[in-house]
Each structure stands twice: as C-alpha cells, then as structure tokens.
Design a protein around this nucleic acid. Structure first.
Length: 266
DNA sequence: ACCCAGGGTAACT
DNA sequence: AGTTACCATGGG
C-alpha cells in the first residue's frame, strides 16, 4: 500500500544527506530508497509532501515517526530567521529536518564517524550491515547488539573501520549486557542520558550529542565537530543567538550543512 | 609526501 | 584540569 502525507518545508535530499543518516540512496530525481533498523522504504517527494510506496500500515507508523512529521519546521525556521546568519543558512539548506533514528544504529554509526569523513562512514556502515545484519528481501538489516557483541576485532576487520573496531564491540557488549539501557534514555534529561552514553568506549562528548539529537530528539544538544567549531569561531564567538531557544541542535544542523557547502567559496 | 575527515583515549604536565 | 601524540583508512 502507498501512503501520502502533506508536509510543508521538507527537502528529502537535504534531510537524508546532511550527515545525520548514512543508509539512504537517491534512485531518481524525487525518489529515495533507505534502510533504518530492519525496515526499508522507497520515499517519493511531491509538490505538497511525501509518499511512502508499497509498505504496510505498521511500517507507515514507523516511518512517520522516523521523519518526525508532527514537528512544525516552518515555525522553527521562522523563529531562527531573526538572526541574519541563521536565516541565510536556513534558506540555503531549506527543508532539512532532524530524523528520529533507532538508538543502537545511531550509536554504532557515530562511533564509526569519529575522525572520519561522510563517504567513508557510509561505506563502513554498508559493509557492517552486509556482513553482520540479517538478510532481508530488500537489503540488510542493521546488525543487532547480540550479533556484534560476540565478534572479535579480527572478524570486524573486513569492514575496514580501523581503530574504531574495538569501540563497536565494546558498545555492542554494553548494550547487550545491560550496562547501558538505550530504551531508558528516552525519559532522561539530556545530561543524565549523556552520562550513560559516555560509559561506552569511543563515545565522547560530540558522539554522545549526535546520538541524543538524532535518536532521542534532545534538540538542545549541539555536536561540536570540526565544521561547527569553524562556524562558532567565524560567526558566533559568543555562542549561538537567543532565537534558537530550545532548538540549538536543529539550528546546528542548518549551520553544519551550510558551512560544509560554502566554506572558502565566498 | 602531506593534509584532512560529523573525535576519543591515554599519557602526559 | 588542561594539553598532546596517537589512533586506521581513504580521498584530495
């Protein structure tokens, strides 16, 4: 069955390729195929919204949640636009939304992201899924914590994650044995949730903020990667403007996308 | 050959 | 508490 949703201010290409998710492929002008957790979907962008093609009603609920379609981004962008630089970033990166991704997948993905670049992160995650994820008829599921927890660094070497291999294993083991309860973080404050995530080797301040923002919708969190550090020193030496309110993490995503496409081009 | 990438850890002052 | 070398890999 196909499902259609009216959405204002959504650009799928910007949303799916702005460095928050790594398992999407552009298949035509307005169509994107993606995997998340153990589900897959073909999404089509229309003039007034998006369509999810050939999925069940249960999966539709999942994808509706994934795209966080109940949040009004038009209103948020309007709020951001009282700051001139942020306004420019929102115009350039029009249509970005923060997704609500599955926590374990986000945890492993952003462990892999450290000191790495987006194309290579994408490749490592693809090999991780093909090697250790369940085979589905449309692709491969993201590997479970159980599947990854029993691996050795040597068994992980084909995915070429480099020094991050031992971090992946540590994360999977701590999720599997309950040292970190990912489901419990939804109802915790950002600070408390971060304390839990920092128990995992290879998860530092920045990676923790990515997980909190991209999985748990803790929109106050601002991941300080090399690009955002450039933004801060260049444009906001005294911090982000007040108009970001409780959405500094969302503002961060517009600024990240904007600076990455415009650095040293003006 | 050198520098960089959605950084973190461990070993130093 | 704050700095710094080192960590694998691949593209420019």
């Amino acid at each position: 069955m196909d499902f259609h949703l009216k959405v204002q201010g959504l650009n799928l290409e910007r949303t799916l390729f702005c460095g928050q998710a790594f398992r999407w492929k552009k298949v035509s002008d307005c169509e994107f195929f993606g995997m998340a957790d153990s589900k897959s979907v073909l999404v089509r962008e229309n003039s007034d919204g998006i369509s999810f093609l050939n999925i069940s009603e249960n999966d539709f609920i999942f994808w509706k949640e994934y795209f966080d379609l109940d949040t009004d981004y038009v209103k948020i962008v309007e709020q951001f636009s009282s700051d001139a630089i942020l306004k420019k970033a929102c115009e350039f990166s029009h249509g970005i939304r923060i997704l609500k991704q599955e926590p374990f997948e986000t945890l492993i993905s952003f462990i892999i992201s450290q000191n790495n670049n987006i194309p290579r992160i994408t490749g490592i995650i693809e090999r991780l899924c093909e090697s250790f994820g369940e085979r589905l008829n449309t692709g491969y599921a993201f590997p479970t914590a159980e599947a990854l927890a029993k691996l050795t660094q040597e068994e992980l070497s084909p995915i070429r994650a480099g020094f991050r291999a031992r971090y992946i294993i540590d994360a999977a083991q701590k999720v599997k044995n309950g040292t970190v309860d990912l489901n419990a973080l939804y109802n915790m404050t950002a600070e408390d949730a971060k304390t839990e995530l920092l128990k995992i080797k290879g998860v530092g301040d920045k990676v923790a903020d990515c997980i909190l923002l991209f999985s748990y919708r803790k929109t106050t969190q601002v991941p300080h990667d090399v690009w955002i550090k450039r933004v801060m020193t260049e444009f906001y030496p005294n911090g982000l403007p007040e108009c970001v309110g409780e959405y500094s993490g969302i503002a961060q995503q517009f600024l990240f996308d904007y600076i990455r496409h415009n650095w040293k081009k003006e």
